[in-house]
Design a protein around this nucleic acid. Structure first.
Lengths: 115, 115, 115, 115
DNA sequence: TTTT
DNA sequence: TTTT
C-alpha cells in the first residue's frame, strides 16, 4: 500500500437509500448522510453544524442498506473519497465527490441487521 | 459529540501550497493531494488509481504547510469533509468538496518541520 | 505532529463505569468495552470473536460517561494507546495497555446525552 | 459488521523485525514501534512522550516487513488490538496487548517497497 | 528499543 | 463482563 484515502462518518440518513439492481446481478445503493457537529461559540452559545455526504454502496453493502436502512437511520460508514465528473449540456464539466463505502455498522437497535 | 466526520489521507502534493495572509492575521493555505491506490486486476496485472483531493489549512497549519511543504512532498492529513457552494454567472450553483485539515504529519525526511 | 497513535472502537460496556472524583476537582472514569467481530470460516459457518478493551476517561469525558453510560451501553470511543507498568509484591513489573479516550459518541437512543 | 476495533499508528521501528517462517508456509513478523507525541506544557516548554507498541504481521505483510523494514524505519500501521494471555511458571497469567496489522505503508524513501 |  |  502506498497511499491512504479513508473516510469515517457517523450520522443519519436524509432519505431512503435509492437502490438499483444492475445487469449482471450487481446492486448499487446511494443515500445522503448528515453528520452533525455541536460546539460552543466564544460567547458560550451552543451551535450545531450539519454537513451532508453522498454515500455509495455496492453489492452486498447495497443489499444491506436496502434491507435495513431507512430515512433517519443512524449508521457508521467507512470508505474512500472519489470525485467523479460528468458532462453538462453546455459542454462544460461538473464534479461531484462521493464516499464509496467499504464497511457500515447499523447503529439503530430496531433496524439492526443482526436481529 | 454526536456525529463523526473524519478523513485521513496519505499522499503527495501536486503543487506548491497556495498561501494567503488574510486581514486580521489569519492565514490560509490550499493544495491538491494525490492518493494512489495500487491493485491487481483479475488477470494479475498491476494497476494504480490516483485520486485528487483539495486540502485547506488554516492558521498555524497553513503556516506550517507554507514553510515546509512543496510540490511532491509526502504528507499525512487528517481533517473533515466540507462541501461549499458558490454562484456562477449563469445564476446556477456549483459545489466543491474540500478537506479542512486539523492535523498534518510531514513524511519527507528532508523537508521535515522538526529539523 | 510527528507521530500518530490512534484507536477507534465501537462496542458495548461490560460494566458500569467506575468513577472517581480526585482531589483538585479532576474526575476519572474507567470501563471495559467489548468489540465483537463476526466472520464466516472456510466452511461457511458464522463465528464471532470478542475482544475486551480498558477505556480510561478524564475530566468532562469521565463526567459524561458517569452520567450517561451504563452496563451494555453502545458507544464509539476514540483515543490513544498507553501502556502503564506497575510493581508487584514479588519485585517484578506488570504491564497493562489502556485506551485513553479523547472523544466518545453515545450510540444508544435512550441514554443519549443530547436528549 | 457490528463492532469496530481499529488502531492507526505512524512511528519508527525500535528493532529489526523478528521473522519466522512457520510450518505450512505461513510467516509471522513482529516489531516494536515508537510513536512520539510532542506538546508544550503550561510554561511553554516543549516536551515529547514516546509510547511503544508491539506490532504483529502475518503472511504477505510479514514478508514485506522482513524484506523492507529495518531498525529506525518510518511506517504507517493499521490493524486491530488483541490481548493475549499466557501462563507463567508460578501458575498465574500474564496479559499482553498487541496490534495485529492489516495494512502498512512504508514511509522511508530509501527502503520503499515500490522502488 | 526508534525518530526529529 | 457486553451486545445482536
Amino acid at each position: 500500500m502506498r497511499g491512504l484515502n479513508r473516510v469515517t462518518l457517523i450520522g443519519n440518513l436524509g432519505n431512503v437509500p435509492e437502490f438499483q439492481a444492475l445487469e449482471g446481478g450487481v446492486s448499487v445503493a446511494k443515500f445522503s448522510l448528515a453528520t452533525t457537529e455541536t460546539f460552543k461559540d466564544k460567547n458560550g452559545q451552543n451551535h450545531s453544524d450539519t454537513e451532508w455526504h453522498t454515500v455509495v454502496l455496492w453489492r452486498s453493502l447495497a443489499d444491506l442498506a436496502h434491507q435495513y436502512l431507512k430515512k433517519g437511520s443512524s449508521v457508521y460508514v467507512e470508505g474512500k473519497l472519489k470525485t467523479r465528473n460528468y458532462d453538462v449540456k453546455d459542454g462544460s464539466k461538473r464534479y461531484v465527490t462521493e464516499i464509496i463505502a467499504d464497511q457500515i455498522i447499523i447503529l439503530d437497535k430496531r433496524t439492526n441487521a443482526d436481529e
